[in-house]
């Protein structure tokens, strides 16, 4: 074949090093540029991440996924009206809108030990994939341990600290928020869990404990629930969450 008919694609001799890392190494090149195949793989990963950021919480589906817990569910919305506002105004994502505040005020039940909150965060996709199994397993364990549960709160356009606004109205002793994490190229469906003792407005993030990367290829659902149970029990024993619990607990990563 003449030179003109060749694409000029060159592979890298050190292809075998890919065994040691998921980093995009040994991509090869054409001229000094990345080969098309690799370029398209990158675009696909970015497309998955973008789609996850703009994915919307499917409340009906979530309610069906959580139905087996037998707990009542209330869906609420933050003050961030849509995704673009949510992305630019994290402060609004931490506050309940008027209708949601009223909805939670109208709940007439005694304060419970634990309130579970499920929020879209930066990836509703992560919630669709992981919230059902984690909540179901967790509710089972929590009940076994003898704790009472508040209604489950489902939040659209919610940030972690909306926990405090919900906590002020429902007054649980402890809140657990499951929230979609910021998608990376290698994981667009990763869920986080934030545990807050005595949630109320004005708390800062060092008062919470956090589990990250909850997904099938990361921290598995069963492992996540085991870690959550450890934190819950430590929190009730110490009557706090956050940096102090992490220091004393020792088992947290």
């Amino acid at each position: 074949m003449s030179e003109q008919k060749k694409t000029g694609l060159e592979s890298d001799e050190w292809d075998a090093l890919k065994a040691y890392t998921d980093a995009r190494i040994a991509l090869g090149k054409t001229g000094v540029s990345i080969p098309l195949r690799e370029s398209l793989l990158f675009r696909l990963a970015h497309a998955h991440a973008k789609d996850a950021v703009y994915s919307r919480l499917n409340i009906a589906r979530l309610e069906a996924d959580l139905a087996s817990t037998g707990l009542p569910m209330y869906s609420v919305h933050s003050q961030a009206e849509n995704r673009d506002i949510y992305l630019q105004r994290p402060d609004l994502g931490r506050l309940l809108d008027e209708l949601s505040t009223k909805r939670l005020q109208d709940i007439n039940s005694a304060p419970a030990d634990i309130c579970l909150i499920v929020a879209d965060g930066l990836s509703a996709t992560a919630i669709h994939k992981n919230a059902g199994p984690v909540v179901t397993l967790l509710v089972e364990q929590v009940r076994k341990a003898g704790y009472s549960l508040a209604p489950i709160v489902l939040v659209e356009q919610g940030r972690v600290a909306i926990t405090d606004a919900i906590g002020e109205l429902l007054r649980p002793r402890l809140a657990i928020m499951l929230v979609g994490e910021r998608p990376g190229l290698s994981s667009f469906d990763s869920m986080g869990a934030y545990i807050t003792y005595a949630p109320q407005p004005g708390l800062t993030d060092e008062r919470r404990n956090c589990l990250s990367n909850i997904r099938e290829q990361g921290l598995t659902h069963i492992m996540a629930v085991n870690k959550l149970m450890y934190i819950i029990q430590s929190a009730f024993r110490l009557q706090l969450t956050g940096v102090a619990l992490k220091d004393n607990g020792g088992l947290l990563e």
């Binding site: 890392t21 190494i25 090149k29 000094v32 540029s33 690799e38 990158f42 990376g184 190229l185 290698s186």
Partner: peptide, 20 residues
């Protein structure tokens, strides 16, 4: 590598970008 930081989860510039 490939502009994809697999630890910090963001996109930067690659070795290829520098050569470009």
């Amino acid at each position: 590598p490939g502009a994809d930081d697999i630890m910090l989860h963001y996109q930067s510039t690659s070795f290829h970008d520098a050569l470009y």
